[in-house]
Amino acid sequence: MLADTEFSSFIIVTYNSARVIRDCLEPLIDLVQQGHEVIIVDNSSADETLAICSAVIPNARLIINQNNEGFAKAVNRGAEASSGSTIVLLNPDAVGTTEAFGQLLESSRVYPGAVLAPMIVHPEQRLSVVSAGRQPHLGRMILHYSGLARLAGPSVLEGHYLYPRQARSARDVDWATGACLAIPKDLWVAVGGLTERWFMYAEDIEFCYRVVSAGYKIRLLPGIQISHAAGTGTSEPKSMKADWIVNLWHFYDQDLSQSKASSVAWKLVVALGLMSRAGYYALRGATSEDKLAWRHESRRFRAFSAAILRAK
């Protein structure tokens, strides 16, 4: 068993996650036996999520919300109940091996006081970007959506998202996805946990902004890989909702923008970038064997583009 000061708390927020939660939890069984804790905060699931959680890890701590109050509120509630010196945020549709999680926890000793992020890989293999990078300042968004960030070169050319060749070895980043993050508990308390201004999405990027602003580091560890099927944390089909980009716009407008003009420019750059991707996916849908999937992606990105233009 681990000493009290060494164990970690895995915090998983579920909502109708029966389809994915078993694969998420099973690699944690050995870690629980070693003394780490698993805290599951359920946002009023109507499926078999809780029954599966209890069956896979009977001694996991279950916190059951009577209503779905959103992702950030649930995470904060779980963090408040945690006892470990390190908090590990883990999405219910994120899957790693026991060894990978062990390496992530061990890295906390190598990089004390830093937020640690594994390399997130996507089973669908449609995302060519890394789920980490630079904060969404206007210049970084221009670099990303213009394609200039694809050029191998100095960090000044890096966009909001990194590309794999820009993350071949451990390095500092401005943000990393909250799908899996290891965070020292004292750091979590110092910066105030996740913002609850949004129901879900963008709270991880905003959190990372406060982490870096407070003088801490966010370290991306490409040698540790966690699989994440983005958008499949519930039993519902992949959504057309654009909350992820609308919330990112609100974050930029309220926290990063220097002027009204830069806020308007950000909208236009992102909307045009999303629309260009919709066009590319439409072309893929015309030539690929997986036509329906690519056409669906095209419709989604058109919806995202329209939503960001409407955002206020």
Rank of each mutant, 00 (worst) to 15 (best):
R197L: 03
K312G: 03
D42I: 00
P164Q: 08
N76Y: 03
A152V: 11
C208T: 01
G78L: 09
E26I: 15
S54T: 13
S298M: 09
V38S: 07
L309W: 00
L148Y: 05
Y145V: 06
A3E: 15
M200H: 11
V212N: 03
P27Y: 09
Q34H: 06
P136N: 06
V173W: 04
R219D: 01
D47R: 00
C53Y: 09
L90E: 02
W198Y: 12
G102T: 10
R168K: 07
F301N: 00
I87M: 02
P164T: 05
H36T: 05
G215H: 03
G223Y: 03
S82D: 02
A3W: 13
D290M: 09
M240N: 05
H160A: 09
R109M: 10
C180A: 05
P184C: 04
S17L: 10
M119K: 15
R299E: 12
G231D: 00
V269F: 07
Q66M: 07
E69K: 13
A46G: 11
L272G: 09
G223S: 03
A46P: 00
A79W: 09
D255M: 13
S305P: 07
I245M: 12
T232M: 05
Q254D: 05
K185R: 15
L28E: 07
G133M: 10
I245Y: 08
D186G: 01
E124N: 14
A271T: 01
A60Q: 01
W198F: 14
V110K: 12
S83K: 12
S263N: 06
L31C: 04
G178Q: 11
D47Q: 01
R150D: 09
W198D: 00
P123N: 00
R168Y: 04
Q225G: 06
G193P: 01
Q125F: 08
I63Y: 07
I63L: 10
D4S: 14
A306Q: 11
F71W: 14
T287H: 11
G133R: 06
W175C: 05
L143P: 07
L272R: 06
Q258G: 13
S213F: 03
C180N: 06
S54Q: 14
L151W: 12
Q33W: 06
A18E: 13
E6Q: 14
T287R: 14
K312A: 12
K291E: 15
V88L: 07
L62C: 02
S259E: 03
A79F: 02
G96E: 05
V110H: 09
S298H: 04
I142R: 15
G153K: 04
Y161C: 04
E26W: 11
S128H: 13
L268Y: 10
S17R: 07
